[in-house]
Write a protein that binds this DNA or RNA. Structure first.
Length: 438
RNA sequence: CGGGGUGUGGCGCAGCCAGGUAGCGCAUCUGCUUUGGGAGCAGAGGGUCGCCGGUUCAAAUCCGGCCACCCCGACCA
């Protein structure tokens, strides 16, 4: 993509309304624009990030045996009357009426819809287990939206729902999601910590929330320092095997948010206790037959008896993750994207646009990288070097390549990692090899 | 929902107290000069001063109502 033609409205100054770093940087980097309180448009750069994150989530869901669906955003109130939540959910639910005066609502979650689908289609235990997921916009009319997309009213969410014949099966499904979540956040370069949680409005018996560590996170967390050395990607996962030992291992270490942490009762000695901040990015629930009983989602078991299906639901805030990654990875100059979530892998800077030699060298490198499938944002604008460097730092692409007359005289370009380290003068061959290879 | 605050060109702000018909920096456009870390000079464009009503010869400014947005707290992916 050529910068000269890319819709990237960056801001030089901090918008007054943005108080936290991810909000500021997302606005300044031209990723998002606010439409109304807690509701945002995602501009090209932000949209690319959203797609990248979504893709990781999708891959991990698929790997764990889930199947993607897409349910309606607008739901009929009658399903919620059945579950009993229509009156319980409160003002967070956006209620609307269609032209026939039928009460509808913009879905804040999809337990009712998916249970309806299930009960209309599945009759036998032989068809279980099932686990359906979707990635879709939700709307919750929060009392106080804030922090940009971190706590919006409209937000992009992966939600999925498991169906099992019995409790043991439901626990297996729950454990798969537990492991899949650890992997998902780790692949995005985040340290996530599962914590026992209240089940809130979803209701249920068993629940974990996944908190991602970030110094600027909104809640204080206390955990065993051993968490910081854990790597979920290092363990081999067989989703068909018994995952309980892994879940046990990952719930063995102490972790608590500030409202649950009691210094007096904390089992971890002070020097082994990590105190930091975090952001909730995922939440998993096992709630058994709460919805299946209320809505009549029953299957026939091996003995011929009709039993309500055992369910769980699982959510990841995909749009929130974009903010969480920034909170966890930025510096004074801007965002530092992990490669997997970066909108482009490489920022190519032409230090002297208009100079024939620079133009030619940049065009050649740009073509070569693009043909090799590398995502490149090529700053071909007639701007001063400082403007281009500053913007590249701000938008945080993992690799910067600077091409200027100085280096060209000796046949080199400069390669620099956004995450740190000095710029290296390398031959164009080496630059290509490095960027195409890894 | 309780408490606090702010609405003035795209962004950041001044002007309001002591009413007289809108200004600064950045950004944008044009020209010239410049060109390896957010350039210089000259010129130009762009504003129903959140909205409605009131007071007044005259309202960004005073009064009343409303709306929007932000921050702190209680709740959430």
């Amino acid at each position: 993509m050529r910068r000269s033609r890319y819709f990237l409205p960056t801001l030089r100054e901090n918008p007054a309304e943005a108080q936290i770093v991810s909000h500021r940087l997302m606005l300044r980097a031209g990723m998002i624009r606010q439409s109304s309180a807690g509701i945002y448009s995602w501009l090209p750069l932000g949209h690319r990030v959203l797609r990248k994150i979504e893709q990781v989530v999708r891959e991990e869901m698929d790997a764990a045996g889930c199947q993607e669906v897409l349910m309606p955003a607008i739901q009929p109130a009658e399903l919620w009357e059945e579950s009993g939540r229509y009156h319980d959910y409160g003002k967070e639910m956006l209620r609307i009426t269609d032209r026939h005066e039928r009460p509808m609502l913009f879905g804040p979650t999809h337990e009712e819809v998916v249970t309806d689908i299930f009960r209309n289609s599945v009759r036998s235990y032989r068809d279980l287990p099932q686990n359906l997921y979707q990635i879709q916009w939700k709307f919750r009319d929060e009392l106080r939206p804030r922090f940009g997309i971190m706590r919006g009213r409209e937000f992009y969410m992966k939600d999925n729902y498991s169906f099992d014949i019995d409790h043991a099966g439901a626990v297996r499904s729950y454990n798969k999601m537990f492991v899949a979540y650890l992997r998902t956040f780790a692949r995005l370069g985040l340290t996530s910590i599962p914590m026992q949680a209240e089940s809130g409005a979803i209701g249920g018996d068993y629940s974990h929330e996944f908190i991602v560590l970030a110094d600027t996170g909104e809640s204080a967390v206390y955990c065993d320092r051993a968490w910081l050395d854990t790597d979920p990607l290092a363990m081999g996962i067989d989703y068909e095997a018994d995952l309980q030992p892994i879940v046990d291992e990952w719930t063995r270490l102490y972790a608590a948010t500030d409202d649950k942490h009691d210094p007096a009762a904390c089992p971890v000695p002070e020097d082994g206790l990590y105190q930091g901040r975090g952001i909730e990015v995922g939440h998993i629930f096992y709630f058994g037959t709460k919805y299946s009983k209320a809505m009549g989602a029953k299957v026939t078991d091996p003995d011929g008896a009709e039993v309500p299906v055992e369910m769980g639901s699982y959510g990841i805030g995909v749009s929130r993750l974009a903010g969480a990654i920034i909170e966890a990875s930025h510096d004074e100059a801007g965002i530092i994207w992990p490669e997997i979530a970066a909108p482009f892998k490489v920022g190519l800077i032409n230090l002297r646009a208009g100079d024939a030699a620079c133009d030619e060298a940049c065009e050649a490198l740009y073509s070569r990288l693009v043909e090799a499938g590398v995502e490149v944002l090529y700053d071909d604008r007639d701007e001063r070097a400082g403007v281009k460097f500053a913007e590249m730092e701000l938008i945080g692409l993992p690799w910067q390549v600077a091409v200027g007359p100085r280096g060209l005289k000796v046949g080199t370009a400069e390669l620099k990692a956004r995450a740190g380290g000095e710029a290296e003068a390398l031959s164009f061959e080496s630059v290509s090899a490095r960027l195409i290879g890894g």
